[in-house]
């Protein structure tokens, strides 16, 4: 049988076979192989916990698949708290009729990405449901992540952000969003998703002792929405330079055709961080020297809220000022 059946989720021999032949094979480690109802792991004084569900269609897209994505999203969320990610759990929901070859490539991608990110998948679950949509059978994955704080890995927080801080962006905007949309629309181009774990670059910043004040990965809602959250939580104004914003030419033209704004497009392997001005240049060099950080840029500074109203302002190329609000609705393409 080369497809997932309802029996594979029934908890019996078939389920065990699926676990052994795929999940344990690729994801196995000393923790997972305890095979108990819950896994015992070494912890730390203070932990960071997060969870995220992945329901992306298509499940395989240029530059990645849902297995890789489900690690990146959760690992990056743990990283952004300042903690060092250690463990993941993975709940897989498979639709009946899913090709095992597709499942295998997603499990393998999860394993490879977890290894790259330096985390162990320590617990998991598999369920099979009927294919209710009548379309290609899909996969949904929930991952939970656990990280630990220690001397080198300290919490970031909005309270640390002050006027004069530098805003750094780790790379080009909009790649994941454009890759997914392009695939759904059947458009041929070179755009690939940027889905990636940011462990290496964050670790490098932390090891170098950079004064990191706040971090956030740039996902749904895009950079403008993330910075609006920062404006709200810090009470400051974030001023960006349009000239400095990194966007690849392919994504720029794709977004232009659809009337999308890269400032509101999602990524899955980019972060924005707020660092002390004294560390700005050094932090930028570290980012640019890190894996996935070659297009990193200093994109703006934190200033006092004008008239007591915090917000996000873009200094445009022609010298204009544009106030960037958060994303409303679904970021739908406009009409003409």
């Amino acid at each position: 049988m080369d497809r997932v059946t309802m029996a594979d989720g029934a908890g019996g021999v078939s389920t065990q076979r699926l676990i052994d032949s795929l999940f344990a094979k690729y994801l196995g480690n000393d923790y997972l192989s305890q095979m108990e109802d819950a896994t015992r792991v070494p912890g730390g004084a203070e932990l960071a916990l997060t969870t995220d569900s992945f329901v992306v269609t298509p499940i395989e897209f240029p530059g990645g698949n849902i297995g890789r994505l489900s690690v990146c999203g959760t690992v990056n969320d743990v990283l952004m708290s300042g903690a060092k990610p250690r463990y993941l759990t993975a709940g897989w929901i498979l639709e009946e009729g899913l090709a095992l070859s597709v499942l295998e490539s997603c499990v393998r991608a999860m394993a490879e990405t977890a290894k790259e990110a330096g985390v162990f998948v320590v617990a998991g679950d598999t369920k099979v449901i009927e294919n209710r949509s009548g379309k290609e059978p899909g996969i949904m994955i929930n991952t939970a992540g656990c990280g630990v704080f220690d001397e080198k890995h300290r919490p970031v927080s909005a309270d640390l952000v002050k006027e004069g801080d530098v805003i750094l962006l780790s790379g080009n905007l909009g790649d994941h969003h454009a890759a997914l949309l392009g695939k759904r629309m059947g458009i041929e181009n070179d755009i690939v998703s940027d889905n990636a774990p940011l462990s290496q670059m964050v670790e490098a910043l932390e090891q170098a002792g950079v004064a990191l004040h706040e971090m956030r990965d740039v996902t749904r809602g895009g950079l403008a929405t993330v910075l609006n959250e920062f404006a709200e939580s810090t009470g400051k104004t974030f001023v960006l330079s349009e000239e400095a914003l990194p966007v690849s030419p392919a994504v720029r033209s794709f977004a232009g055709i659809l009337g999308l704004d890269p400032l509101y497009m999602g990524n899955e392997g980019k972060m924005v961080c707020i660092v002390d001005a004294k560390d700005g240049d050094r932090a930028l060099q570290i980012l640019q020297g890190s894996r996935y950080g070659e297009n990193a840029a200093a994109i703006g500074t934190v200033t006092k809220a004008e008239g007591g109203r915090p917000g996000v302002v873009l200094a445009t190329k022609v010298g204009g000022r544009r106030i960037l609000g958060p994303l409303y609705g679904e970021g739908l393409p406009r009409i003409c």
Binding site: D261, L314, A315, T316, K317, V318, G320, R322
Partner: peptide, 16 residues
């Protein structure tokens, strides 16, 4: 033209 409206906003022209 709606695209003019969007571009005027995006480029911050009113502030100039």
């Amino acid at each position: 033209c709606g695209t003019h409206t969007a571009q005027i906003v995006r480029t911050g022209i009113p502030s100039l």
